[in-house]
Amino acid sequence: MDFELSETAAAVQKGMRELCADFGTDYWSRCDAEDRWPEELWTELGRGGWLGLAVPEEFGGGGLGLLELAVAMEELAASGAGTAGAFLYLLTPGFGGVTVTRHGTDQQKRDLLPGIAAGTTQTCFALTEPDAGSNALAISTTARRDGDDLVLRGQKIWISGVQRADWMLVVCRTTPAAEASGRTSGFSVLLVDVREAEAAGTLQYTPIHKAGNRIVKSNQVHFDDVRVPADRVLGEIDAGFAVLWDILNPERVLAAAGGVGTAELALRLAVGYAREREVFGRPIGANQGLAFPLARVKAQTELARLMTHKAAWLYDQGRPSGDEANIAKLTAAGAAWDAADRAYQTYGGMAFSEEYPIARLHRDARIAKNIPVAEELVLAHIATQGLGLPRSY
């Protein structure tokens, strides 16, 4: 076994760290306070090819894998963005770049990948529904065949990045559940031209006021007979669940990478403060009541990083990675939350001041325990798939 990053992954790590050095915690806190997309950073990511790391070279990308994308995600989150950076970076390089590269037709790749690599095309992903949160099998958004088109109708919720997206990957039913050949049959993943549907008045979205992660807006989305050409199906019609899992596992790996980076950031801030802040004549970091919890967070973070890298490596090798992706997501989300919480405790009352980024990191990190999948469902997956225990649902 070799635990060293490859030369390519190490170069990605170094390059992203250098780029993000100009966009630290103060920058991200300003974007959060102003409730705005980090345009300046996004421009630099596109200019430097960071949005197309996983896009094949023939389409202008870097031709790299999920591991390199995860390493880049870690560095972005650790630079000052925290969980917000994970949301931002997942939308286009992850949902768009990875999925279209893996499952797109030649024409779909030509239509989307060059723009993704150049930073001129953005994507988002629509799965969750008001009455079908974690139970993807229960989604009710449908697409019926009408000549050469599919007509999409239904609604989605908590869809992030619609405001910026040119294309939306939408999971829907193309065969009613009662007529499908199995529980996971009858689903398809469609590529929806967001601006075209918006101009036609068939796609509307409403932003959701959120407690955190304000840099990337989340929305409720309504599809009112959106016409989608049949050649915009990703993968095969009615066989979209295979594509869906190939979206969800990389999503969990990249979310885990964001969690690792967030934990690294919160830990760095907490340790720096614990070294400098003196109470009762000595640095507060000398007190085991503060030092030991921070040491435990360090251990959690390193373990989460190892599993995240392993899951990404397995995916790149074309090997089963579902168990590892779930374990990585579980451990990294826990590390990020614990690190942010311990940073809050270390800063004491000053954590409540927006002079410091601690409160932002704290509220943003909490949501990672619920999305992209609740930790209870991750534990259910590990129990049934990893331990062979009977299902409870």
Rank of each mutant, 00 (worst) to 15 (best):
F3T: 12
L5C: 04
S6K: 01
V12A: 01
Y27E: 08
W28Y: 11
E39L: 02
G46V: 06
R47C: 07
R47F: 03
V55T: 07
E57I: 05
G62C: 09
L67N: 07
L69E: 11
A70M: 01
A77D: 12
L88A: 10
L113V: 04
P114K: 04
A117H: 00
A118H: 02
C124V: 12
C124M: 10
A126V: 01
T128I: 09
A132S: 13
S134R: 11
A138G: 14
A138V: 14
L152R: 10
R153S: 05
R164P: 10
V171R: 01
A178E: 13
E179C: 08
T184R: 08
G186H: 01
G201A: 06
K210M: 12
K210G: 11
F223M: 00
D225W: 00
A230H: 09
I237D: 04
A255L: 06
A256V: 01
A256W: 02
G258H: 15
V260W: 04
L265P: 01
A266F: 02
L267P: 03
G272I: 04
E278D: 11
E278P: 00
R282A: 02
L294N: 04
V297G: 00
H309E: 09
G318N: 13
A325W: 00
A336K: 02
A339I: 03
D341S: 09
T346S: 07
A351F: 08
R360Y: 15
E375A: 15
V378Q: 07
G388S: 13
L389H: 13
